[in-house]
Structures are given as C-alpha cells and as structure tokens.
C-alpha cells in the first residue's frame, strides 16, 4: 500500500463504499436482467426516494365493489379439486387454504415456485402441465410480488398474463394480488385489467404484519389474508365455492410441488 494511502486510511474506504452505494442506487432505476433464471433484487432506493404517484390505499377504503361482480352468487356446493399456484407467498397462504379445503371436502394441490413471476409461469407453460396432470376444477393463483418494481410493466408482462389466463381456459379461478410493501409500478392494475370480472382479489392496500424480510406477511397475517379472500368470495367472486370455517388454523395440502428459482 503506498505511503500516501496509509496517511489517509479512510479515503480509499470511503471511495469504495461511496462508489458501491452510487452503483447500487443507479441500478435501482432500472430493471435488472435475469441471470440463469435468477433476477437480482433491486435495492429499492430509487423507489424509496422517488415513489410513483399512485399511493397505496388504506385497507378500509378499498371499494371492494369495484373489484368483483356486485351481485351475490350462490356458492357452488360441489367438492372441488383445487390447484393453488404461485410464488413464495404460498408458504403462508397454502396451509390456511388447505384447512378450508379439508373443512369443505375439497382436495388441494399447491405448486410453489420460489421467486417466480407471471413471466416465468407464462413462458414455462407449467400451468398447462399441472392442469393436465391434476385436472383441477378450481384454481387459485398468487403472483405478482416479484414484479412490483418492473418498469414498463404493461408492455413486458401483459402477454404472459394473457397466456396464463388462456391456459386456465374455462376453469373458474381467483387471482390473489401481491401484498404490496411498496408502491408498485402497475402490476395490480394490469392483472385487474386482464382477469375476468370477479376473479381478482386486490391485496394492495391491506395492512400486513411482515416477516423479518419486510416483504412476506407473517404466518398469522397470511392466515388473515387468506381469510379475507374467503370472505370476499361469496359477494364478489364470479364463481364462489363452499368454504366452511375450519377448526384447525392450518392444514397440509394433499400434495405440494416445489420449484426452485432458475428452473425452466
């Protein structure tokens, strides 16, 4: 180490930290490319300093009528084979839905694809594979949490959401929106526009207790989240199904399929 640097030991360290900070800050303005299927996380610094104008709505001010169909549908009392697909949010939601399924005579299959997005599902056609394999009569989807920061999201993601909806075809479904921890760049609006009436549960605006990562709801909060979806269904879903209140808080789905980040 040159003598000059030894006299000013903090200078190099400061430069190192400041340059890294500026780089991380600058990168947060852009979408990061996927590397071997893994999309590096954004620092969120740009969003924290310059949020988009749309502000999250408080839970009690969400006009629920605007999300689902306004008329109450008679619930379908048949037993269903339910397929629940999505990202890591299923870790919290799936055990609660399994408890409802057990109490209502349904059979639940969960497919958790960690760090997945509408793009990953839309490109992979894995949803079609699972529909063929399990013949579900009802589908729940929870996706979008890994796409809160995507710029120009309508151009980039609309084809994949449409692809997923096409794969679902005529099977009734409910898409549970992401539990925003920050203002999104339009994922909620885009899903709402591309799903059928009464098929989208908007979670943005709900208040969650978060896990230590600041993003995922705690298990208790995820249970309340799933309860909100179930309470929403009879009034607003286009195809409500029987959902009896379970005695156990959580249960285990009939089978869980796991996919890791980077799988095709």
């Amino acid at each position: 180490m040159p003598e000059k640097n030894k006299k000013r030991p903090y200078t190099l360290l400061w430069i190192l930290l400041a340059v890294a900070l500026v780089a991380v800050f600058a990168v947060s303005f852009f979408d990061l490319p996927s590397i071997f299927g893994y999309t590096p996380k954004s620092s969120g610094m740009a969003q924290a300093l310059f949020p988009t104008k749309e502000q999250p709505v408080a839970a009690d001010t969400i006009p629920l009528d605007s999300i689902g169909v306004p008329t109450r549908m008679e619930p379908d009392t048949a037993s269903h084979t339910i397929l629940f697909i999505g990202d890591s949010m299923l870790d919290g939601l799936s055990p609660r839905l399994a408890a409802y399924a057990d109490a209502s005579g349904h059979k639940l299959y969960s497919v958790v694809w960690y760090s997945s997005s509408t793009e990953i599902w839309g490109k992979s056609h894995r949803l079609t594979d699972y529909i063929k394999k399990l013949s579900p009569s009802y589908i729940f989807i929870c996706l979008g949490a890994n796409e809160l920061y995507v710029k120009d999201i309508e151009d980039k993601r609309t084809p994949f959401i449409r692809e997923m909806i096409a794969e679902i075809d005529t099977i009734p479904y409910v898409w549970i929106g992401p539990p925003n921890w920050t203002t999104d760049t339009g994922i909620n609006k885009m899903i709402a526009e591309n799903t059928a009436d009464g098929c989208y549960f908007k979670s943005d605006g709900m208040t969650f207790e978060r896990r230590s990562d600041g993003a995922h709801p705690t298990a208790k909060s995820a249970i309340e989240w799933m309860d909100s979806v179930v309470r929403w269904m009879p009034e607003h879903s286009s195809h409500p199904i029987r959902m009896n209140m379970p005695e156990n808080t959580t249960a285990r789905p009939a089978q869980i399929f796991i996919h890791q980040p980077g799988e095709n």
Binding site: L16, A20, V24, K41, S42, S43, G44, M45, T182, D213
Partner: peptide, 20 residues
C-alpha cells in the same frame, strides 16, 4: 472481494427495508 461482498448482499437482499 469487498465489492463482490457488497453486491452479493444487495442482489440477494435487495430492498432497503430490513427486518429487525
């Protein structure tokens, strides 16, 4: 190594929000 360490933390951790 230092720069790699800082980047590793931020591409895996990401968001500025952090648990206690």
């Amino acid at each position: 190594v230092y720069v790699g360490g800082i980047l590793l933390i931020y591409i895996t951790k990401g968001d500025m929000s952090s648990g206690g």
